[in-house]
Design a binder for these strands. Sequence first.
DNA 1: AACTGAAATGTTATTCTGTATCAAGTCTTG
DNA 2: CAAGACTTGATACAGAATAACATTTCAGTT
Lengths: 161, 161
Amino acid sequence: MGVHGFERHDHARCVGSALDTAERFCAENKLKLTPARRRVLEILLSEHKAMGAYDILAILAAEGVGSQPPVVYRALDFLVGHGFVHKIERLNSYIACAHPGATHSPAFMICRACHHVVETPAQVSSGLDGAAADIGFAIEARVVEAEGLCPNCQSPDAVAR
Amino acid sequence: MGVHGFERHDHARCVGSALDTAERFCAENKLKLTPARRRVLEILLSEHKAMGAYDILAILAAEGVGSQPPVVYRALDFLVGHGFVHKIERLNSYIACAHPGATHSPAFMICRACHHVVETPAQVSSGLDGAAADIGFAIEARVVEAEGLCPNCQSPDAVAR
DNA sequence: AACTGAAATGTTATTCTGTATCAAGTCTTG
DNA sequence: CAAGACTTGATACAGAATAACATTTCAGTT
């Protein structure tokens, strides 16, 4: 059992599915999903939450894989660069992409109470694009994040969730 | 001389003006613009760019003021909390508000070449608000940043700018 | 004027995040 | 197989932020 969005769901299989998608994408685009990269993606998919680089590093270290910061940062650079993983700037942490395949400019909702992070499927940056066009700014990357309370944490009795 | 937006401008006087605005706002709202807070704001206004906390700290230290990290982080917390300064999450740095007074959810354009940061006057987060409303998420804070090339840095000969 | 509670400072230390650097291996492509 | 590009290993360091504690300042109250 896990949590997807702010609702429950059985996500045992979506990990494998997402890994398969990544494998396929890399094969098609001559990218190398090396063991370290694959393992980091797998960890992020399994945990299904935003994780700090050092949280991931701790897991790698426990498995005897390379346990120095550059190992995980290099893997994250690759995964973020190709859209398999997103960085949540507000939290200095990383989360597996919830909508792989789709070319998107993701937006995130971060609950400050339960710390769940949801990637919105919606395209929300049109206003930003317009403002950039107005001044001739060429956008290459977007950061769109909202922090607040998720539906579950807005009720007064939602403390121990 | 300085740079405002992505155009040149003489901004000698806008520093004083912005400081006055802050003074007035604090007086009206019973907030204390203490020397350390005022000095940090002044530095950010003068430099007129995004600065890391430790850049600011170095300046404070050179002046003999308190030179430990908490000094600058406390000042920044105050200034960010009341909207005098914004944090650029993408850069882990801070910039003086370019539109003081206006209640806004700021958005930023970050040039990866010349490192200038522009705060857009436009309200760009309506799409995000809509997506949040759809799922019942209560937004308390927004992060909207775009990274790319400013007009000046898009031409091939704009290297040494 | 003295008392009190809240806010602001001073200080030391520590933790978390991320990069620079250089040496060594691997892969692939002509 | 040689050259170049990419990936890894490893050490060290730089940069960002907070914890925890004692001390001081200050506005409002008695």
